[in-house]
């Protein structure tokens, strides 16, 4: 699992990447009440808005950590957005991307680097 400075995580299996937000990000957001996941087939460039997470107070964008095409979206979040709080780094994932440029993974942090990054905030 790798992390971005915007607190997304990405888990890579072959050329498929699952994307979600970190436990830290979920705690910061507070109670999630709505999640907008991307449409299948949507082609995202790194940094594009991949999903929108709405807490009671505000809407926050989740950005694509790498470029790719959306091949699956987590439909369970429509009925159970609170999953993002309950299990952010597991069943609270947003979408799976077919990675177009594996080289983009190199700029991301591993867990140790991410924890150090959080400690510096």
């Amino acid at each position: 699992m790798f992390f971005t400075k915007d607190h997304e995580w990405i888990k890579v299996d072959g050329d498929v990447a699952t994307v979600g937000i970190s436990t830290y990000a979920a705690e910061q957001l507070g109670d999630v009440v709505f999640v907008e996941v991307p449409d299948l087939g949507k082609v995202l460039t790194v940094g594009d808005s991949l999903a929108v997470v709405e807490s009671v107070k505000a809407a926050s964008d989740v950005y694509a950590p790498v470029s790719g095409e959306v091949i699956e979206a987590n439909g369970d979040l429509a009925a159970a957005p609170e999953t993002v709080n309950a299990d952010p780094e597991g069943t609270g994932w947003f979408a799976k991307l077919k990675i177009t440029d594996p080289g983009q993974l190199e700029g991301l942090m591993d867990r140790t680097a991410y924890d150090a990054f959080l400690a510096s905030l």
């Binding site: 507070g30 109670d31 107070k57």
Partner: peptide
């Protein structure tokens, strides 16, 4: 803005 319980629980 919130305590440990969070906005929904506090509401």
């Amino acid at each position: 803005v919130q305590y440990r319980d969070g906005v929904l629980t506090e509401h």
